[in-house]
């Protein structure tokens, strides 16, 4: 297992990247990206063990990751670049014309690390279930990870996929739900309450774990626990409590920074709170 202190330092840099990318484009989704930075760093710098220089769309004999709530693309792009999937300088092109870093993740421009487009919500769990089935058909023991948003749980397709994965005993899949209780229009509990999310997944036939998604040690421990539960006939869902905007005080405790870019002054305020550990791009 990687040193969690080192991972936290990487996460701080990823958060700086996120804020700078969204500021530079004057568009994008900083809130959820900041909230999920710890998970992305844990996955790419410890869990997945992918070779960033030999990315293939087929991902044979590799652990796979899918992002269903594609609007948090800044955290994914920064993490991929920091891991070496592509040049750091390419982060400057986020949301610009002729960029591989589309507003929402896409395969069309051939960005290493992305295997399916996402952004229109509710589709990632289905795709992950299909990819996990192919791993089984190919006799692979590698795992498939997928992240969804909590607001995204309002999409009906998520529950089709949840029913399917449990029925087919797709036990090589570990899902995460970014449970920050925020969506564009407000708190999830106000917009359309998910009620007891744990009970929902359990009743659909999943193993359910919970963790603090902004605590690196707990992330590593919980994913480790989830890995031990694979291969036992049930898919696994980790409900990940996070704070939208984590790391930037004025972006926390509100849904307002879901999809808003900081101005120059706000950028400076944010960067003062985030250590530049690896050097800005």
């Amino acid at each position: 297992m990687a040193d969690s202190k080192e991972l936290k330092q990487i996460a701080s840099q990823v958060r700086r990247d996120i804020v700078r990318m969204v500021h530079s484009a004057q568009s994008g989704h900083p809130g959820g990206s900041l909230g999920c930075a710890d998970l992305f760093v844990a996955l790419y710098f410890d869990i997945l063990k992918n070779d960033p220089k030999n990315f293939t769309l087929d991902g044979k004999d590799e652990n796979l990751f899918f992002l269903s709530n594609g609007h948090i693309s800044p955290v994914w792009y920064s993490t991929l670049a920091r891991k070496g999937f592509f040049e750091l300088s390419e982060l400057k092109t986020f949301r610009q014309l002729d960029s591989r870093l589309q507003g929402h993740p896409a395969t069309e421009e051939g960005l290493p690390g992305i295997r399916v487009a996402s952004g229109s919500l509710g589709q990632g769990l289905s795709v992950a279930a299909g990819a996990a089935l192919t791993k089984k058909l190919n006799g692979e023991d590698k795992l498939v990870y997928v992240l969804m948003g909590d607001g995204e749980q309002q999409e009906g397709q998520v529950w089709e996929a949840a029913m399917f994965a449990a029925h087919k005993k797709i036990d090589n899949i570990i899902g995460f739900i970014d449970w920050n209780n925020r969506q564009i229009d407000g708190d999830v509990t106000d917009v359309l309450d998910l009620k007891d999310l744990r009970a929902k997944y359990e009743s659909f036939g999943w193993e359910v774990l919970e963790m603090d998604g902004n605590n690196m040690d707990m992330i590593l421990d919980t994913i480790g626990e989830a890995q031990k539960m694979t291969g036992r006939g049930k898919p696994i869902m980790i409900l990940m409590k996070t704070e939208m905007g984590q790391g930037v005080d004025f972006m926390m405790g509100t849904h307002k920074w879901h999809g808003v870019a900081p101005n120059n002054e706000q950028l400076e305020q944010a960067l003062q709170q985030l250590d530049e550990t690896l050097g800005d791009y």
């Binding site: 299909g130 397709q157 399917f164």
Partner: peptide, 17 residues
């Protein structure tokens, strides 16, 4: 569950099916 079917089909292609 046709929506799920299309997504699962997309996923199955990843790895050569």
């Amino acid at each position: 569950s046709e929506a799920n079917m299309m997504g699962v089909a997309a996923g199955l292609t990843i790895g050569g099916k």
